Amino acid sequence: MVVTLVGEKLAKPGVEFIYYGPADPCKTCRLARVCVGNLEPGRRYKVLRIRNIEHSCPLHEGKVRVVDVVEPAIEVAIDPRYAIVGSKITLSFVECSDIDKESVVKPEGLFEGDIVKILEIVGEFECDGKKYKIAKVMREKE
């Protein structure tokens, strides 16, 4: 679990967001270490709990709230040979020319080479003549 700050409108349990990096005003903000310093660019986060603390912020319509976040499970297409629930694998994105499958072929929040644990298999699909499993995975942190 990570403590960070989010805009008041995003401060609701269950809300997911992707952190893309700090904005210019963040670089000189006294709260940057706890706000953006705890987040990794390109990762997806899910708000678990809202704490009863708020601060002013020039980016979020005036206020940010202190929240607890986690990296949620993400659905990703994997080679069926490695689709074993409970196993840990090094993520290798599959090749698929179908642009409509992009959200599971290369989902935002995961990077090629991440170590992930397969939590469950939620489906399958075919692309370019090959079958793939759609697995719900959780990134394992070093």
Rank of each mutant, 00 (worst) to 15 (best):
T4S: 12
V6E: 06
V6M: 10
G7P: 10
E8A: 15
E8L: 12
E8D: 15
E8V: 15
L10I: 06
K12F: 01
P13Y: 08
E16Q: 15
F17T: 07
F17R: 11
F17G: 08
I18A: 12
Y19I: 03
Y20T: 11
G21K: 11
P22I: 14
A23G: 07
T28D: 11
C29Q: 09
R30V: 15
R30A: 06
A32W: 12
R33K: 11
R33E: 15
R33I: 08
V34N: 07
V34C: 01
C35S: 06
V36T: 14
V36P: 08
G37Y: 10
G37Q: 14
N38S: 13
L39A: 09
E40H: 07
G42E: 06
G42A: 07
R43D: 01
R43M: 00
R44F: 00
K46N: 00
K46H: 00
R49G: 01
I50F: 03
R51S: 14
I53R: 12
H55C: 11
H55N: 13
P58F: 02
H60W: 11
E61M: 09
K63L: 14
K63F: 13
V64Q: 08
V64I: 14
R65E: 03
R65M: 10
R65P: 03
V66M: 06
V66D: 01
V67Y: 00
D68Y: 13
V69M: 05
V70D: 13
E71Q: 14
P72I: 00
I74A: 04
E75C: 12
V76F: 08
D79F: 09
P80Y: 06
P80G: 11
P80L: 08
R81I: 05
R81G: 12
R81F: 11
Y82M: 07
Y82A: 12
Y82F: 15
A83S: 13
A83I: 09
I84K: 10
I84M: 04
G86T: 09
K88D: 13
I89W: 08
L91P: 05
S92L: 02
F93H: 05
F93R: 05
C96G: 03
C96L: 00
C96W: 00
I99L: 10
I99P: 03
D100Y: 04
K101F: 11
E102Y: 09
E102V: 07
S103L: 13
P107A: 14
E108Y: 08
E108K: 13
E108Q: 10
L110K: 08
F111M: 09
F111I: 07
E112Y: 12
I115S: 09
I115M: 10
I121H: 09
I121W: 05
I121Q: 00
I121D: 03
V122R: 12
G123V: 04
E124C: 04
F125S: 13
F125H: 15
C127F: 02
D128I: 03
D128Q: 01
G129Y: 01
K131I: 06
K131H: 00
Y132A: 00
K133Y: 02
A135S: 04
K136L: 14
M138L: 12
E140P: 02
E140Y: 10
E140H: 02
K141W: 06
K141F: 13
K141S: 15
E142G: 12
E142K: 14
E142F: 07
